[in-house]
Design a protein around this nucleic acid. Sequence first.
DNA 1: AAGTGGTCTAGACCACGTT
DNA 2: ACGTGGTCTAGACCACTTC
Lengths: 230, 230
Amino acid sequence: MSRASYPGIKAEVLRRIRDGEWKPGAAIPAETDLATEFGCARATMNRALRELAEAGILDRRRKAGTRVSRFPVRKATLEIPLTRLEIEGQGLTYAHRVLKCRQIAAPPGITQRMNPDGTARLLHLFCLHLADRLPYAFEDRWINLDAAPGILDADLTTISANEWLVQNVPISDGDIAFMAEPAGRDTAAAFGIAEGTALFVVERHTRISRLPVTLVRLSYAPGYRMVTSI
Amino acid sequence: MSRASYPGIKAEVLRRIRDGEWKPGAAIPAETDLATEFGCARATMNRALRELAEAGILDRRRKAGTRVSRFPVRKATLEIPLTRLEIEGQGLTYAHRVLKCRQIAAPPGITQRMNPDGTARLLHLFCLHLADRLPYAFEDRWINLDAAPGILDADLTTISANEWLVQNVPISDGDIAFMAEPAGRDTAAAFGIAEGTALFVVERHTRISRLPVTLVRLSYAPGYRMVTSI
DNA sequence: AAGTGGTCTAGACCACGTT
DNA sequence: ACGTGGTCTAGACCACTTC
């Protein structure tokens, strides 16, 4: 049974749904009533129900009340750590090599996303992340030098570009996409595999209040799985 | 400047970090002090700081206080909808075909994860999800009939197994993994592509309080991208 | 031992959306 | 118009962890 604590209340609400007492699509009592029933303050009940709503278990709307979701949207929270920390977290030794680092004109697809007004100077990097000396991920990165002044002074062979950016350009927002792609010439060479091998690719585009900061493609070595719980 | 509302406070805290007033690794004032400074109740400040901590921006520990994260762990929240809703959400017409549906003995790798005590009866399904009549995702699913009694009575050509499970076995937990894999014989045939083509694969294992319910592998058509914002 | 965040309470006002 | 959830307040007690 539930105590008057919000985790206990969440557990009891989940039990009622699981046991069919509250069915998908059905309305449940208002939070004032539930607070009375559970003998807790409305704020406590609110926190429990709000978190269940954020998790996609409940649908809440003012006036309409609270319902059990008909189609609970599973939400998987992926933690995207620095590649270095991801590797060290597995007990492996991290290292990285900068394969290419140049200030060059960007191809049209990149320009469109990184340099919308055409004035920015861009830095292009190829970098290989190693775990216990074995290739772990291949990084293809564009950096907007206007958004990250000072990175030209950094020793990117010592600190990875990702890590420098995290420390020096904090709190950016952006998009992230996950996909499967065949290995291209550069990645195949880096991993020592055949071109066309299926690779897991993460593409991140980060901005700092609309200003593009960096566009990065991380291609992981064959066999990589990104895992989380739901 | 911030009003005494928690979103406003969050925005102001983020601004102070972005503008370097509060640096990564540094402690920020205690929430009682900040509440005084912002002229709000401690509970309001608590909610703002707590949400920023959940987002990985701040590190909070009793007695030790609140610090700006040195390595903010980016958290990407992926919403995993029903395949039908994902397709209909793009304005396309959903359909699905059951390619195979049999109660058969499972191979060892499956048995280990779905049938640990060796007593369960398992149902095996191959299913193709279509968007505007084009193959969208290939589903390879095992279902524990002990956890989902009644699914044998369902018409899985009308309602997909996924949808039936969501409606009838609510509130399960589990693991999810994302990977890239070469197309096998079945998926290559289903999508009309060459074997070995890089496919984006999602593997979900769901349980209901330790009891395995279903193990599903969804292989998406070439070009699929799973996108979210961070 | 003491300071910090974690939580709960009882009450209040308000925004929103259904009616 | 009115019922519901969304939020804020002022205060309190407690748990954890560092000192």
